[in-house]
Simulated scan of single mutants.
Amino acid sequence: MPLYVLAAVLEIAGCFAVWSWWRGASIVWLIPAAIALAGFAYLLALAPPTHAGRSYAAYGGVYIAASVAWLALIERTRPDWADLAGAGLALAGAALILWAPRG
């Protein structure tokens, strides 16, 4: 799962840079955005499940939890109970997708 966490940080940072530019920040913000988003795509392609759809689905849960962490750590906004519960449910779903026994 560390691979997913790093991919999520890169995706959120890249999207945040585009979001900032769209709201008036310098166009220079698009350079780190492109680098971060390319890094995200590369890391997600390295994910271990043999099926891309399963890998992307599991990643989605980690992305949700990382987004809530971004809210708290970068945007300095305290997540509420629904943010935390939703992130917990998403992580439980990701764990089920990744580690469920399959025949």
Rank of each mutant, 00 (worst) to 15 (best):
S67C: 14
P79M: 11
A36F: 12
L10S: 05
M1Q: 05
S20T: 09
V62Q: 07
A52V: 09
L89V: 06
L46M: 13
A45Y: 11
A87V: 07
A57L: 14
M1R: 00
T77V: 14
W19E: 12
Y63I: 05
G53F: 04
G93P: 01
L98D: 10
D83T: 07
L71M: 06
L98M: 10
A45F: 07
P101T: 12
S67W: 15
A52L: 13
Y59P: 00
A85E: 15
E11D: 12
L6E: 10
G14L: 06
S55W: 13
A38H: 13
A94E: 15
W19A: 03
A47C: 10
V68I: 13
I64Y: 04
V28E: 04
A58F: 06
S67V: 05
R102S: 09
W99F: 11
I12D: 07
L98T: 04
R76Y: 12
R102D: 15
W99D: 09
A45C: 07
A25I: 02
L46G: 10
G103C: 04
A72E: 13
A65M: 12
L44R: 15
C15N: 12
R102Y: 00
A33I: 05
A85S: 08
G39Q: 11
A34M: 01
L44W: 09
A69L: 07
A41I: 08
E75P: 15
A52W: 15
D83N: 11
P32E: 02
F16G: 00
P2G: 13
V68H: 13
P49T: 02
R23F: 02
L43N: 05
A82M: 03
A82Y: 06
W81C: 03
A7L: 08
A33Y: 03
P101W: 02
L37D: 14
P32R: 00
W29K: 09
F40V: 00
I35K: 03
A38M: 14
I27E: 15
A34I: 11
D80S: 06
S26G: 13
G24W: 08
H51D: 12
V18T: 11
R76S: 10
V5A: 12
I35M: 12
Y4H: 02
W81D: 06
D83A: 10
S20H: 09
I27V: 10
R78Q: 11
A36M: 04
F16L: 04
V9R: 04
W22S: 13
V68A: 08
R23V: 06
G39V: 01
V62P: 00
L37F: 05
Y56V: 02
M1W: 06
L43A: 07
Y56S: 10
R76D: 11
G93D: 09
A87D: 01
F16M: 03
L37I: 03
L84C: 08
A95D: 09
A34H: 09
R54H: 13
L10I: 00
I74S: 02
A41Y: 15
V18D: 09
A47Y: 04
G86A: 03
A13V: 07
L46F: 06
P49D: 02
V28K: 05
P2K: 13
G60L: 14
W99R: 08
A7P: 15
A7H: 10
I97C: 01
R102M: 10
T50Q: 03
P101E: 02
A58L: 08
G24M: 12
G103A: 11
P79T: 15
